[in-house]
Amino acid sequence: MTDEQIIRYIKGELDESERTEVVSWIKSEDCNFRHFSKLQLAETFREMEHEALSDEEAKERLAAAGWPDTANQKWKKKSGWLSIITRIAAILLIPLTVVGVWTISRKNGQIKYLTESTNAERIIPIQDAASSTYIVHPGVQGDVILPDGSRVRLNSASTLKCPDRFDEQARVVELSGEGFFEVEGNPDWPMYVKTSKGLTVKVTGTRFNVSSYENDPALKLTLVEGSVMVIHEATDRQYKVLPNEEMVFYDGRPTLPHKQEVDVLPAIIWKDGILLFENTQMPEVIKKLERWYCVDIIPQDPAIMEMRFTASFESESLTRVLQLLKITSKIDYRIEGKQVFLTR
């Protein structure tokens, strides 16, 4: 399904059989729905600056709606009950929208962590309780509120596993992918974020971003505020990270991290829906685009992987991103269903 056809659908330009086709495409996969939803919202809000009505038109419409007769009662004081009810209704509106996120991908299941060792001094505590797994598909982001009130924004194609209740000793969660954490402060109740790379992040109250995709060659931790410790599980070695620092642990040599001072914004800007590339190498660009737009990108010329790309996108369609890539880097593209082929 091309973006052009989807946009025509959004604008109501299609006939019934074409509409049926678009609708069954949207329903066939969650990923397609996400893509449609993204485009739908972008298209709708892009056009939200319409001209004002003419004076007459406005008067007619207001009259049709019973105005200003409705207004004549305006000086009557509302009964206390009614005003309480409207207030309650306003409060109820908010949780309803939050529930939407939770229901996306909540799964329940008992899990237990490995207990093969019986170290008395376990550096990373074991959490033994019913847990939930939050899965965020490619092409979408999700918010999770942890049982202690801490917040996590999950980037596309990420998973977070956390217990339904944290135990008294520690707060342990498991992350695969990328998440921006805002952890409620409590020095006596540390939080441990475990990753599949054999590294665990230990924090007591802080804001940080951790990216640990399985198909990325490194774990990257960026600290905004507070302080965190990264623990290498096999050796119990600990590495301290300070605000405005970024620490990168490459697969294969996890005990030799690379640390540098950075501007944290580029690392966390994804959480505001912005896709940013700053002289980024193509392998990383491709992976980010794949997660962001839920597609497979296949470069058909090895020279492409040597190139770099600088741009920032906010709610642009994939086609527009690819067009820009074509203009700036002379990389041509061909979309076939959910596959994108890059050629030179």
Binding site: E16, F33, T97, V101
Partner: peptide, 20 residues
């Protein structure tokens, strides 16, 4: 078809991104 479309659109309208 209308009901299918309504279902898709109600799902989008409930997305927190609309608020944002």
């Amino acid at each position: 078809l209308e009901a299918h479309e309504a279902l898709i659109h109600s799902r989008i309208l409930q997305d927190p991104e609309v608020d944002q």
